[in-house]
Amino acid sequence: MTHLARSRLVGWRLLQAIPVIVGIIIVSFLLTRALPGDPAAYFAGPAADAASIEQIRVSMGLDRPLPVQFVAYVQDLVRGDLGISISTGQPVMHELTTRLPASLELTGVALLFSIAIAMPLGILAATRPNSWVDHLCRAVVTAGVSLPTFFTGLALIYVFYYLLGWSPSPMGRLDFLHLSPPKVTGFYVIDALLARDLETARAALAQLLLPAITLGLFTLAPIARMTRAAMLQILEGEFIRTARAAGLPRRQVLFTYALRNAILPVITTLGMVFSFALGANVLVEKVFSWPGIGSYAVEALVVSDYAAVQGFVLTMALLFVTLNLIIDVIYTLVDPRLGLEE
């Protein structure tokens, strides 16, 4: 595949994302306007009367017709202004940039955990299809996805923090003894390592452990299932049989040939799993006081915080579009068929 073709592919993907983003802007605008709360009443405070609420409604521009509000919203958006969140009183942009790394760090570690467990399980199951190992793997990962995350989270806190005391207090990204490391990437563990502050890195990692496991358990199933299916299909393929017939060692066949081919559909699944995990994040963040964007979105939704909900949804959409792009690119890089053409 030529360089030009590849960049054209990327360009085409970008172009495809545009109508989606337009759709998202419209849907999120309409959705937030349909929320039953009244931000003006919220803004006006606990002892405000109807007149002062109306006054605030006018000053927030909420008395204008919807299309006018939409145009104003899009204009602000073009200027990069996402508005001010009423629930935290901060600019939405600022909130999202400080909270997004927290969510990404959590989801990332959870996915790593999940991959580390699920892929071996999937491979194990695929090498012994329909044996008791296969059934056990299936039961384990299915049990993981069958548990509501908030339940798992609370149970883990109860056992590992409350009863055993092994885990640090579930109070967010760092306990109160440590200060957040100087911001480089926004990922505390990485930032702390960059600052050569092992103590803080350790503490940040310890805080991450339980929520990441909670989330990771939930994402085991799709990864394991896809690994198993892909491996099964590949292992039955002609070229594996040939390789085996040629007397190549089992390990080499499995990991060099089979896995390399099986990893493609797994990577595609990862995109889906990421979306899935970010959604589930909302509940996990709530349980672990994690200052991510999921918990922020829940709060915002509950108080009808238009700006925050819209900002959140837009960020998510962009994130997904980017993610899918990255997956597409990785796909082209990893796919041996495409590689051969080069």
């Binding site: 109508p19 759709g23 909302v282 509940l283 939704l301 998510m316 959409a317």
Partner: peptide
């Protein structure tokens, strides 16, 4: 695609 671009639970 638009629906899928939202985190579904949210």
């Amino acid at each position: 695609d638009t629906i899928m671009a939202f985190p579904l639970f949210v």
